[in-house]
């Protein structure tokens, strides 16, 4: 008995020592979205080791957290509409008032947002747009129309990549048709289904994490892409141009959320504060080529970002549309349209 107690005490001591020497943080993040140097900097400043897994769509994030990963990660980076869904599903923890030292650094326009009023569960990470790019060596005509994806010119047929997520590709199709995102009108839904089923014949692939590579390698001559990721394709040498279509396009904001049952809650709060430092937010923007939602970043950005065609829509471009959260019954119809499309 005495031995047992001693043993238990020894194990407890060892566990404490272990915790003190290597505090950990588990991050569930989009692929290619944070520079390794920034994670190293966080570890150097706080002594907290960062472990990161990645996903390629908001829907994958939700599916994997639902499949039992909740409780093993501290923070994740869902897009705006996914923050709403995760909040309603009770998957987010609340950040108490005053817990975040740098909360004041959040830009005013991103503080009271519809998907998280008063920023009780999240902080801004980056925001940007979803549209498409066209290889100018292949097609020289007008690209400021969503017809490029859904009713493509002869040159682009069979050479188009679309994002592998219902949340963006079906919403983009709705924008093309000018119908509401969460339509319950059967005729509209049927027309949407027919549109994407018909357009699929002209598409080469469904790929999100490879959306940049297929453009750079020439496997796709046009492809749906996020503006920052697209800029990387251009900087890697592809003769591609980002489009702000006349019909509209998607805007989004990704947010760092505090997950429910986070095993290292303190480390998560420290990480969020770290990301709200202008210097660190700028490092993310310079890497990912989107736009930060943090004050005081401007002067720290690469000069090219100020004038890049991907970040700066032409004056006559319409305002972008956020993805909406549909009610469950409606969402199921969209899920089915997506599943049928993928089949």
């Amino acid at each position: 008995m005495k031995h047992l107690k001693l043993g238990a005490a020894a194990i407890a001591l060892m566990a404490m020592a272990g915790a003190a020497s290597a505090e950990k943080l588990s991050v569930y993040h989009w692929f290619e979205y944070i520079p390794q140097e920034l994670l190293d900097k966080f570890t150097a400043e706080t002594g907290i080791e960062v472990v990161m897994d990645t996903y390629d769509s908001n829907e994958t994030l939700l599916a994997n957290l639902k499949a039992g990963k909740l409780g093993s990660y501290d923070v994740a980076v869902p897009g705006d509409y996914m923050v709403s869904i995760m909040k309603n599903e009770g998957m987010l923890d609340t950040i108490a008032e005053g817990e975040l030292k740098n909360k004041g650094n959040i830009e005013d326009q991103w503080l009271n947002v519809a998907f998280d009023d008063g920023r009780m569960h999240s902080i801004p990470y980056q925001w940007g747009s979803t549209s498409f790019m066209v290889n100018r060596d292949v097609y020289g005509g007008d690209i400021r129309t969503t017809d490029i994806i859904f009713n493509p010119p002869e040159e682009l047929k069979g050479k188009i990549n679309v994002l592998d997520t219902a949340g963006e590709t079906l919403v983009f199709a709705s924008i093309h048709m000018g119908i509401p995102q969460c339509s319950t009108d059967r005729d509209q839904l049927k027309a949407l289904d027919e549109l994407v089923q018909g357009a699929k014949a002209d598409w080469a692939s469904f790929n999100s994490d490879g959306a940049k590579d297929v453009l750079v390698s020439g496997d796709a001559a046009a492809g749906m892409i996020w503006n920052g990721f697209g800029q990387k394709a251009r900087l890697e040498g592809a003769n591609v141009e980002y489009s702000y279509p006349k019909q509209g396009y998607i805007v989004w904001m990704d947010n760092v959320v505090l997950l429910k049952d986070a095993p290292n809650r303190d480390a998560a709060i420290k990480f969020m504060d770290f990301l709200l430092e202008p210097e660190n937010a700028a490092a993310v923007t310079n890497f990912a080529r989107y736009t930060a939602g943090v004050k005081g970043v401007g002067a720290l950005l690469d000069e090219e970002l100020q004038t890049s065609p991907e970040q700066n829509p032409p004056a006559d471009a319409p305002a972008g549309t956020f993805v909406e959260v549909c009610d469950e019954a409606t969402q199921k119809v969209y899920d089915q349209i997506w599943t049928r499309l993928k089949q």
Partner: peptide, 21 residues
């Protein structure tokens, strides 16, 4: 296959992932 020409394994994955069924 580019996520377009599904095989049975991919169909199953789809149901556990984005298909949510």
């Amino acid at each position: 296959g580019g996520g377009k020409n599904l095989m049975f394994g991919n169909l199953i994955e789809l149901q556990f992932g984005q298909g949510r069924n």
